[in-house]
Write a protein that binds this DNA or RNA. Structure first.
Lengths: 369, 369
DNA sequence: AGAGCGATTGAATCAGCTC
DNA sequence: CGAGCTGATTCAATCGCTC
């Protein structure tokens, strides 16, 4: 029993709150298998003497020899593996992780992700439309950051709203390179003195795409490096719940204020395109039972090359071959598989109509109106 | 003394040759501190499972070669660290490394690069204009690969032709995300049976940009995973020397044949610009990188009165004058300005075609993005 | 001749459910 | 857990053929 093992009552998950403290310790207090998604924007300074710092807040202390370098990489790796392991414990079996970083840290993070048993789905490039130039002209303009999207394990089946992303991309499959501007203007939070409230505030557009792609309404999103709460703000807008962890009181204060102003989009607005995978199953035999097609009637492939006869039990038969609409189609095509719903057609008014049209008719009847 | 330490005479560096054997062992036989650049396209450790079919039931020809199979992450890491360490020994103190990979391996490679004392200058994204789609609709289109550019050490001062890259990018700083098509068509080498000679041949445009950016004419470029010799072919065209190492006899044979046909561009053509320029959208240099026009090739004005030669960085030169297509055109016309895109023509089948036609071709490729 | 159509192909960790 | 069945799913570019 878990309660006996931990020596404490099973903790409950505090939701839509910002938790204060070190994320590794705080995550330890959260129940295992309780969140749908982790989005993390960890610090990436490798100089771990004392505190971790954001890149522009950090002094770049020259590392003079190999031992120092190894020491700081080792410290960063230890920190990275610790929070990734806790995050993995807190994730549901079919949960997923997003981490964002730059070349300073992303390779170490990515290797740790793999070593800890996560399974990478994609790496995604955020190509900035308006990056900061390299003023000294010694390197290329650092115009992108890298995100890693990983399931909790190889067996995990993370949420992926394929159709929704396809729509976001004007009808063609979403690619792994995303072009978006950095966070500026009114979106960029300022402190009382007018300075940036946080050095690395991410654009809401980025989180919007991440959450539309890999969560559903009502899901819980954990952000262990909450900062000024971009993850929470977008989650709330999209009808998701969030759990934020942030160590710095100043950032928590900014985030609280920000979140108080956020209004969720209307219920219908957060629905996304689903595709056929989510539709209810309709056996082909149902069309026969309902008299939409008759036993003995002939189906034909679109090119007219193949014909088969419908039997009373909803199987097809042709030249001694018999079986499901899929199996017979595959057999005739000599293909490993075949979607019978789109392959087979019946004739109506001289035209060929895919049997999928009849299935859609039944599905329409089944929908709550 | 090195000779005493190694117990052998200091080895000399064989240049413009393909060396046969395992790259780790072969590199051990090369003198330390002897090459200017290492470009490496190592196995990606793809870990593919079963077969994959397109929606039209055709089978995808995947990378299932023995050279891409490793028993575990640990085995892959050991291999990676071994070749990276030898490559580092062979590099000059101010030398640099490029490695290309995908999310399957690049995080492990990048962490090893850092651990071994290299110093990352940039990570670079090759965004493919025409990637293979995700046929099952289960993930994002895997539309990019990642390159790491690193100096031998933090103290190293690697070659970086900042101005040349700026010219290649039509006057604005070159970014870390590069958009290029994959290697297809006539550039893609075929074996006797018409099948692809190598499963992962890289486009010459990619190597062109890498070598223009981080080497000078006369430099020596080592490629420990030579394959069909793209690195060698582009190096020779650009007046660089190469050292190729390849284990597979079949690949070596294809590469030898390929290299025998390669002619270096003329001396003046490989000089890169030191000046500055600014202008519109599709950089002229892109036409050069993509092989639509070649360094050394002549452009001519419509009336035939003026001629200029193309250089590797996308600038033109004539009678000691050098600069962008616009600047050189203006100079020759004695005019304050000139639209090089409509002024300059190349010859095809005896007819003069404005280079703008090529720009339009590229724009057509870039449109849906 | 040139437009248009069909076939082919590329570094890919590519399904989910029931029995 | 494995076997077996249902059934969902692709974009850009090149090449070669027909009209």
């Amino acid at each position: 029993m878990k309660q006996a093992k931990t020596g404490a009552a099973a903790p409950s998950l505090p939701v839509d709150e910002i938790l204060s403290g070190d994320c590794i310790e705080v995550m330890r207090s959260l129940p295992e298998g309780s969140v749908d998604l982790v989005f993390a924007d960890p610090p990436y300074n490798l100089q771990l003497q004392g505190e971790l710092h954001r890149p522009d807040a950090s002094r770049v202390d020259a590392v003079t020899n190999d031992w120092d370098r190894f020491d700081s990489f080792a410290a960063y790796d230890a920190f990275t593996r610790a929070w990734l392991a806790e995050a993995r414990r807190v994730l549901k079996p079919d949960g997923a992780l997003w981490v964002i970083g730059s070349y300073h840290n992303i390779f170490r993070v990515g290797a740790a992700v793999q070593d800890l048993g996560y399974w990478i789905q994609n790496d995604v490039i955020w190509a900035k439309t308006n990056p900061m130039p390299n003023f000294r002209g010694t390197r290329l303009t650092n115009a992108h950051e890298t995100l890693i999207w990983a399931s909790r394990s190889q067996k995990g089946r993370p949420t992926f709203n394929y159709e929704a992303l396809k729509e976001l991309n004007e009808g063609t499959q979403m690619r792994s390179d995303w072009s978006m501007p950095i966070c500026t203007g009114h979106e960029r939070l300022k402190d009382a003195g007018g300075a940036k409230a946080h050095p690395t505030q991410k654009p809401e557009a980025l989180l919007h795409r991440v959450l539309v792609a890999t969560t559903n309404p009502g899901d819980v999103v954990l952000d262990p490096f909450f900062g000024t709460g971009t993850t929470g703000a977008v989650a709330r807008k999209l009808g998701r719940s969030f759990v934020g962890i942030e160590r710095e009181a100043e950032y928590r204060a900014v985030a609280e204020k920000r979140l108080a102003k956020v209004r969720p989009y209307e219920g219908a607005a957060i629905e996304v395109s689903r595709g056929k995978r989510a539709a209810p199953r309709v056996p082909f035999g149902t069309l026969v039972e309902r008299g939409m097609l008759s036993p003995g009637e002939e189906l034909v492939s679109l090119n007219g090359r193949h014909r088969a006869k419908i039997r009373a039990d909803g199987t097809l038969t042709v030249k001694g071959v018999a079986g499901s609409i899929h199996k017979v189609g595959a057999e005739l095509l000599g293909a490993p598989s075949c979607n019978g719903w789109t392959y087979w057609h019946f004739k109506r008014d001289g035209a060929k109509v895919p049997i999928d049209a009849l299935r859609e008719q039944i599905r329409a009847e089944m929908r709550p109106s």
